[in-house]
């Protein structure tokens, strides 16, 4: 089973002050895991810090507000739900779009 695990990197850009610029975390997930599921894993790990920043609401549901990219390409929420990750994928999470 372990031989089929996929390594996926989650990069988070300025979501948590002083802790995270360019920081990347590697996750080992089973094949068939969706982008959304990887993000949920990330949120569970960092929920306290995210709440401290008060930027993601109480729910920590980043996918409802934040910008998510897979290998540099923007993913709409529907695609986050259904896109399955594979070995070597990079997921980037950014603060919500605002200003200009």
């Amino acid at each position: 089973m372990s031989t089929s695990m996929a390594k996926v990197t989650v990069k988070f850009h300025g979501l948590i002050m002083d802790k995270d610029v360019g920081r990347a975390e590697e996750n080992e997930v089973t094949p068939g895991t969706t982008v959304r599921a990887v993000m949920e894993l990330f949120v569970r790990r960092h929920l306290a810090s995210l709440r401290e920043e008060s930027l993601s609401g109480d729910s920590g549901k980043l996918w409802e507000t934040h910008v998510v990219m897979l290998n540099g390409i923007g993913l709409v929420p529907e695609k986050q739900l259904t896109t399955e990750v594979k070995e070597g994928d990079n997921i980037s999470i950014f603060l919500p779009v605002s200003g200009g």
Binding site: H13, G14, V67, P96, V97, S98, G99
Partner: peptide, 23 residues
Amino acid sequence: TDRLKVFGKYGTPKNLLLVNERG
């Protein structure tokens, strides 16, 4: 409004990392 709160806190520089990642 989340997006306004983010904007109020960081202003336009918040977009630096995003625009860079988009290449």
